[in-house]
């Protein structure tokens, strides 16, 4: 039951989708649409599981007091703050001080709770109680402070100025810079590649050089541009096609093994 039923479900849904591929009728499209919608919805529920894992691991690291234990504090605080921004709307023109006060109280309350639930056995109840007290303070702030309010049913949090600022000036620069690191890494990777000395590495090197220098100006430029176009359109295309066919067969074979229950490594035992 624990293990058989899931495998039967895999077989049923897998076969259903395979058949669906051959049926152009609109009912078949509806079935596919629903299955895909369900998958999306399950994914969101799973996200809660993911966030819980992130919180759990972070708290464990902090409590271990091993090297670098301070940084998960930053992760937790920024996680909670950003979530808070996303679910609240600030009244236009209102001062942000009481908003920040509320966030601070909320953060401390949450921390007390987390410590109470996951911390050491000693004074757990103390922590839970103080967390509860702070949560009451926070609730009072939420009810009586008119400068901000919770919005769970309208996406006003997405336009909350703090949410937008965190996105524009924290997430975007970090993301772009992380991506930009690639410029350095591709340079060091090139060095690594070009140092290798054998026939295969040399082939790779020559092809890379030709394509890399395709924009070179001057008398060699035109020749290099033409050669690089040939490399891209002929040998590159040929090998890409071979890889693509291989991947296609690999995917078909793996999917078939999954549907037939031959491959079940993805499903736990227990």
């Amino acid at each position: 039951m624990k293990r058989q039923l899931p495998l039967i479900l895999v077989f049923v849904f897998g076969t259903l989708m395979v058949i669906q591929y051959f049926v152009p009728h609109e009912n078949s499209e509806t079935v596919k649409g629903f299955l895909l919608d369900w998958i999306v919805i399950i994914g969101i529920f799973a996200l809660a599981l993911g966030l819980w894992s992130l919180v759990q691991v972070s708290v464990a690291k902090i409590n271990s007091r091993k090297e670098n234990w301070e940084y998960p504090l930053v992760t937790l605080a920024s996680l909670v703050m950003m979530m808070f921004f996303g679910f609240t709307a600030i009244t236009e023109g209102a001062s942000l001080w009481s908003y920040f006060l509320a966030i601070t109280v909320f953060l401390i309350a949450l921390w007390m709770f987390l410590q109470g639930f996951m911390g050491q056995a000693a004074n757990r109840n103390m922590k839970l109680l103080s967390g509860l007290g702070l949560l009451i303070v926070f609730s009072l702030l939420a009810i009586f402070d008119s400068s901000w309010e919770f919005k769970f049913y309208t996406a006003e949090g997405l336009t909350n100025q703090m949410f937008v600022h965190f996105f524009d000036y924290i997430m975007i620069p970090l993301q772009a810079t992380m991506f930009a690191l690639l410029a350095f890494f591709i340079t060091s990777a090139s060095y690594r590649a070009f140092r290798a000395r054998n026939l295969l590495a040399t082939l790779l090197l020559i092809a890379a050089l030709i394509v890399m220098l395709r924009f070179t100006p001057g008398p060699w430029g035109e020749y290099l541009a033409k050669t690089s176009a040939w490399v891209m359109n002929v040998p590159n295309l040929a090998a890409q096609r071979a890889i693509v066919i291989g991947i296609g067969l690999g995917i078909v074979a793996t999917a078939l093994k999954v549907i037939l229950g031959i491959e079940r490594g993805y499903m736990g035992k227990g």
Partner: peptide, 8 residues
Amino acid sequence: VTFGASFG
């Protein structure tokens, strides 16, 4: 050759 071209 493909890997090199794609890299370049």
